[in-house]
Amino acid sequence: MTENMHIYAVARIRSRELDLLGESVINQLVDCNKFEECMKILFDKGWGKSGFEEADELLAAESDKTWDLIGEIVEDMSIFDTLLLENDYHNLKAAIKQAYMNRDIEKIYFSRGTVKREIIFNAVKEHNFSVLDEKMGKCAEEAYQVLFHTGDGQLCDVIIDKSAMEAIYEKAAESGNEVLIDYAELKVASADIKIALRCSRTGKSREFTERAIAECATLDIKSLIDSSAAGENELFEYLLSTPYAEVINEIKKSPAAFEIWFDNLLIKHIKPQKYNSFTMSPLAAYILARENEIKTVRIILLGKLNRLSDSSIRERLRNMYV
């Protein structure tokens, strides 16, 4: 019965998928000589709200459009909390650091999340985390104490990031939705591998690595931590026995290549949703596809603004959903 709940919404998303940017448009954007030409193409494609935005405003407007559309066609938006939790924890991190530095910093908060940013900001300001949910409140208290007593910003980040990954993972499992579960799995696995690699390269203690890495199904945390402590080659050896063996080559290339590999893997996993007319999976896939699209356009626009060569920009591009 639940699979018939989103028939209307999926049909609308099917029509909207026609407006997603394909490889040809992305190539067209990369081939532009100037940043302004890119903006013109995007405005012609209906991007932005007024047609006169700056790049940042344009991308923010597109993200807003996606969530506004989903809000319009889905009654209960909480089913997509998995995708917004990262913003909450980012806002929490920003609020704690802002409180610690005791000065106002502009534009450091995400506007969308499962908890309003003002609530998080006030909770940190008043040092009253009871207004947040139990998991976030506990993590906020720990991170707050660490930063205010030791001034260790890195440890504060580690505590919040791990808690964010755990929250995303739990929320996805609660939803029971295949796309969200896949998203959470890849999110946590990529974060874990990145942490293990950094810890290995910087010679961090085993305790630190244990504190930073979150549980997930596709990685054996103990083996990951052991191999990370033993060295980079041992870590690669362990990764060979996981579904992420191919990422080793990307790690050797650059940190950006690692990120791209995981983003492309997510797009590969969600692509079958283009042919699914039931359940909320195509909606979740559409949101992820739009986020991927916005990220790709951001890379192109920043590349054009900073006068990077076309080949440098192309190296950083993600595969598209359509």
Partner: peptide
């Protein structure tokens, strides 16, 4: 329901 979704767009 599906038809209405398409028609909306």
């Amino acid at each position: 329901e599906a038809a209405a979704g398409v028609i909306t767009e």
